[in-house]
Every structure is written in structure tokens, then in C-alpha cells.
Amino acid sequence: MPVTSAPAAKPAASPRRLLWHRLIFGLWYRPVDVLDEARDRSVWGAAMFLSLLCGALGTLGKDSFWVQWGVSPVLALEAMAIASGVTLVATLFLGAVTHAIARRLGGNGRFAPTTGLFAVVFWATDLPRLFLSTWLPVDSVPVRAAASVTAAFGCVIATLLIRGQHHLPTHKAVASVAIQMVAAVALLKFPPGSA
């Protein structure tokens, strides 16, 4: 009787590539699915792109940039580049602090996905306010309304991110993101003197 070999096991399918537009815009209409899909991925490229873009948009919304532009466009662009770089470093620092707090509270997530996704969540949810602030005064009603809505939405998505990445209960996930989000919202979305 001939011996038949067992059928070879099919190789595990590689995960579908997560394109930037699906990651960034998907956070707005299907955040849980997108965060699940991105859970073990390092999204450094998207995080750096968003941080630099939002740093540039934030600079465009400041009157001081346009005053400097009238004097010297080169110096104004250099100031924008510096602001974008500082924004990138500060955002990654916030993500690293969030990861460290989550680990202290019993989380088990990895550093790279947590930090990169935190940066993406933080700036992707802030894009509407930044676009508005490039055209309207920072203390106008539409900009302040957008700041309130995007701040609340960003806190919710950041909490979902930490809860999923670190397998923490909701109250510990909130504790992991609360201090950084409140400080960043107060300084960036409602800066002193904007009232």
C-alpha cells in the first residue's frame, strides 16, 4: 500500500500593507479596526511625516511667520523647518513617555508601535484644527470649536490605542495618556493668549 505524504501546510499569509492614507484617515471613520491592523507595526514614516507636516501647518497659522516672511522668506522657512523638527522630537517624546507610563501600570506593549502610533493619532486627529488655523485667527470660534472636538476625539483614540497595545483596562489606559494629552492640548490647541 503506497504511503501518501500529508499535504504541506500553507504558509501564513503576510499582513496586508498598511498605507499611510488608510492609517491616517481610517482613524476618523474606523479607528478600532485601524488600530487593530496597525498593532504590531512600526509606523515611523507616517509618524515623522505627520509631525513635520503639522509643525509646518502650525507655523503657517502664526502671524509672526508672515511678518518674518515679509522681511526674509529664507529666514521664515528656516524657522518653519526648526519648528517642524522640534514638533517631531516633542511628539516622539510624548509617545515614549506614554509608553513608559503604560508599562509602569502593567502594560506589555512594544515601544516602537506604541510611540509611532501615538504620534500618528495625536496629529491625525489635530489636522482639521491646523487646516482651519492657517486661514482663520487662532482665537476664532470655528478654530476653537475644532480644537475642542479634536482634543476630545484625540484623547479617546489615544486611550483606545494604549488599551489595545498594552492590554490595559480603560482606566489605566486613560491614566497613561492623560497628563501628556492635557499638557499638549493646553499648549498647542489652546495656547496662552489665544482666549
Rank of each mutant, 00 (worst) to 15 (best):
P7V: 09
S148W: 13
T170R: 02
L27D: 02
P7W: 15
N108I: 13
V97S: 10
S133I: 08
L23H: 02
T159C: 01
R39C: 11
R144H: 09
T125D: 00
D139E: 13
A186I: 11
L57W: 03
L92M: 13
L27S: 02
D63S: 13
V177E: 07
G58Y: 04
G193R: 01
Y29R: 08
V71Q: 03
A76M: 13
L136K: 04
L52H: 07
G70I: 01
I162A: 00
A175I: 10
T87P: 02
W135C: 13
S140P: 07
L27W: 03
W135A: 15
R39D: 09
G193E: 14
S5I: 10
A12M: 09
V120N: 02
G106A: 09
V174L: 11
L57S: 06
T159A: 03
A90K: 07
W28E: 08
S133C: 04
R144Q: 15
A83V: 12
L94D: 15
D33H: 02
A195K: 02
A173W: 00
F122H: 14
K62C: 05
V120Y: 09
W28S: 04
C155L: 15
A8T: 12
V71H: 08
M181F: 10
A124E: 04
A173P: 00
V156R: 03
F25M: 12
G26L: 07
P191T: 01
G61A: 14
H171Y: 12
D33C: 01
A12R: 09
L136P: 07
S42A: 12
T87F: 10
P2Q: 14
R16S: 12
R22A: 06
T4W: 13
T134S: 11
T4K: 12
V121L: 12
T170F: 05
P137E: 06
G154D: 09
Y29D: 09
L105Y: 05
V138K: 09
A100L: 14
R103G: 00
A100E: 00
I179C: 06
F25H: 10
G61P: 01
A183D: 06
C155M: 15
A100W: 05
S14D: 11
L23K: 09
A8D: 09
T87C: 13
L19C: 09
A184E: 01
T150C: 15
I101C: 05
I82P: 05
P169W: 06
S176M: 04
W123T: 05
A81T: 04
D40T: 14
I82M: 13
D33W: 04
R129Q: 14
V74C: 07
T87V: 08
L94M: 13
R39K: 14
R16C: 04
F190S: 04
G164I: 12
P2F: 15
F190W: 13
A76E: 07
P137L: 03
A102K: 01
A12Q: 14
H166Y: 08
A112K: 06
A147D: 00
